[in-house]
Amino acid sequence: LNLKQAKEEAIKELVDAGIAEKYIKLIANAKTVEGVWTLKDEILTFTV
């Protein structure tokens, strides 16, 4: 999975969960695949 694909998957998951745009922007700015997954997990843990 490359960075672009990771971001697309994570953003789709966050949108489906009804997460606010400000958190989705954090994913869009992530620099690594690991960073994308870590941010996604943290956002889902603390906002859902």
Rank of each mutant, 00 (worst) to 15 (best):
L1E: 11
L1P: 10
N2E: 14
N2Q: 13
N2G: 12
L3S: 01
L3D: 01
Q5T: 09
Q5E: 09
Q5Y: 08
A6N: 03
A6Y: 03
A6M: 04
A6F: 04
E8A: 11
E8M: 13
E8I: 11
E9P: 00
E9G: 05
E9R: 10
E9T: 11
E9D: 10
E9A: 14
E9N: 10
E9I: 15
A10T: 05
A10R: 00
A10C: 06
A10G: 02
I11P: 00
I11C: 05
I11D: 01
K12V: 04
K12P: 00
K12I: 06
K12Y: 04
L14D: 00
V15H: 10
V15L: 14
V15I: 13
V15Q: 13
D16A: 15
A17T: 05
G18S: 04
I19N: 01
I19V: 15
A20V: 05
A20M: 08
A20G: 08
E21L: 10
K22Q: 09
I24S: 03
I24H: 08
K25A: 13
L26P: 03
L26D: 04
L26V: 06
L26T: 04
L26E: 06
I27W: 01
A28E: 15
A28H: 15
A30C: 14
A30W: 01
A30E: 09
A30R: 03
K31T: 15
K31W: 07
T32K: 02
T32E: 03
V33P: 06
V33T: 05
V33Y: 03
V33C: 05
E34S: 07
E34C: 05
E34V: 07
G35N: 11
G35V: 09
G35R: 14
V36N: 00
V36W: 01
V36P: 01
V36Q: 01
V36D: 00
T38D: 07
T38G: 08
T38Q: 15
T38P: 01
L39P: 00
L39Q: 04
D41E: 14
E42M: 12
E42P: 00
E42R: 15
I43N: 00
I43T: 02
I43H: 01
L44M: 10
T45E: 11
T45S: 15
F46H: 15
F46W: 15
F46R: 10
T47Y: 14
T47K: 09
T47R: 08
T47E: 10
T47N: 13
V48C: 12
V48E: 12
V48P: 09
V48L: 14
V48W: 08
